[in-house]
Design a protein around this nucleic acid. Structure first.
Lengths: 193, 193
DNA sequence: ACCTGAACACCGTTCAAGT
DNA sequence: ACCTGAACACCGTTCAAGT
């Protein structure tokens, strides 16, 4: 009762992040404002600042939330091709769930603090693919760039298509072909055959 | 004299686009505002609206300006590998000149109206590379995604490194390796050898 | 500890009025 | 035709005050 005039429970940052993510998915990152978010939570705009440092901090929190949902392929003994495919699809599924946030993150350096664990997984897969140690960094960078480019292009196309008539996007097929292409090129360069 | 209290000459949209581009390159797209742009041009904020429809229209104009500077490889008889490399580098050089604008465009569908001519050039190169007609669309999409992903990753890294100590970026080498990888993979799939 | 209202320094844009 | 000031509906954020 002593908590708020408009709500029964105190705010939590988790609650704030979740609401922000919902608004972002609905109307896009650019349409998110502290004041709209507060209205959505039925709360005074200034209350947010007790749980979130700033709008930038809010966005970082939302990204962490989404990041934590990324399903990294486990280190079982399965072929590196399968693991790479799984990773690409996990990434893609996150982008499809939150297209606007995805594009925002991938064009705003610094919103994501560090992808340490992700790098580790990529490296593990590349080692399994036979990439020599001194080419690991180059190859990982290129690989990550390819995957991100693929997904970004698809996401842009998806958002663009919302306002047009365009028939089937055929995106699944394009994505599969592209991932196969990446895998094939890794096989060609480093396999012992 | 009857033109403006603060300037001798009437505004032109070209002048506006050029000034906006300068501000964007200096402080980033997010920091651009109609009011700052007007101040930079020594002009009343509202005067801009006689030459530019809106802030979105302004951004589109700036993109057209930058787009017109893209050096598309000519249709001489040179090997498709060289042409692809040239195209990738032309693209890259634009991103390096205007990193913030580049990232903005590649995450905001609709700022660029159509890249008709660019598509044509890509298709020409892919045909020369032996890509069969019915795989043209898929392959072009993947190729464009790869190149854009490569350049975007590099650009993000570049902007990120501005605030850190990080030594040499080694970006040139990574880029070269990645473009070689793309070319090799096209050669492997479609050459007649 | 958590919330809140008023206030400040910004935005993009409309509109009626000026030359 | 081109410019302009005032005004409107928004922003993010600070701060002093409330419980």
């Amino acid at each position: 009762m002593a908590v708020s005039a408009r709500r029964g429970l105190p705010l939590t940052s988790e609650e704030i992040y979740a609401a922000a993510l919902r608004l972002i998915d609905t109307a896009g990152v650019d349409a998110l404002s502290m004041r709209k978010l507060a209205a959505d939570l039925d709360v005074n705009p200034m209350s947010l600042y007790h749980h979130v440092e700033s709008k930038t901090g809010l966005l970082r929190g939302v990204c962490r939330l989404v990041d934590s949902r990324l399903q990294l392929p486990p280190d079982d003994g399965s072929p590196w091709q399968d693991q790479l495919r799984a990773l690409a699809h996990a990434y893609r599924s996150i982008a499809q769930s939150h297209p606007s946030l995805w594009l925002h993150v991938n064009s705003h350096p610094g919103v994501i603090d560090q992808k340490g664990e992700l790098w580790t997984v990529y490296n593990r897969i590349l080692v399994a693919a036979g990439v020599p140690f001194d080419e690991l960094a180059h190859t990982r960078k290129a690989l990550v760039a390819f995957v991100i480019g693929l997904i970004s292009s698809e996401t842009i196309g998806f958002l663009q298509a919302l306002g047009e008539e365009e028939g089937e996007t055929d995106a699944d097929a394009t994505f599969e072909v592209a991932v196969d292409l990446i895998i094939a090129s890794l096989e060609a360069r480093h396999s012992r055959t």
